[in-house]
């Protein structure tokens, strides 16, 4: 019995520091506010390039708060930050390039087969 008790020493709840959760809930508030803002733009604004640009900027802000604070990347070493962010920046470049290529692809296929 005594042995069993010593095995479960960790059940004791003394010596545990108080939780520090203020920053976490603040980040949560920011994420909720940004999502709410996206919905305001989705219904109050005409669809178009301007609205899409706003959506993408708000999305990048949300991504920043998730990666920097929830995933803690902001407090890692510089080398780790760069080894993650640099390849990501390159894939974002590839995305922009290929997506804008889509309309050219559409035009060339249409012109090629419909004439």
């Amino acid at each position: 019995m005594a042995h069993h008790h010593s095995d479960n020493d960790f059940e004791q709840t003394n010596n545990i520091p108080e939780p520090q959760t203020k920053a976490i809930w603040k980040t949560f508030g920011i994420l909720v506010a940004l999502t709410a803002l996206e919905f305001v733009f989705a219904f109050a604004m005409e669809a178009g390039t301007m609205r899409n640009t706003i959506f993408i900027i708000l999305t990048i802000f949300k991504a920043y708060f998730i990666v920097a604070y929830f995933m803690h990347l902001k407090h890692e070493t510089k080398a780790l930050i760069w080894s993650i962010m640099l390849p990501l920046a390159l894939i974002v470049w590839l995305m922009v390039a290929l997506i804008s290529e889509g309309s050219y692809y559409f035009e060339s296929v249409t012109n090629y087969f419909n004439n």
């Binding site: 974002v92 590839l94 995305m95 290929l98 997506i99 804008s100 290529e101 889509g102 692809y105 559409f106």
Partner: peptide
Amino acid sequence: GAFLIVYGLSRHR
């Protein structure tokens, strides 16, 4: 990223 590229390209197509 590749999935989103395909989505964007198909949409513009």
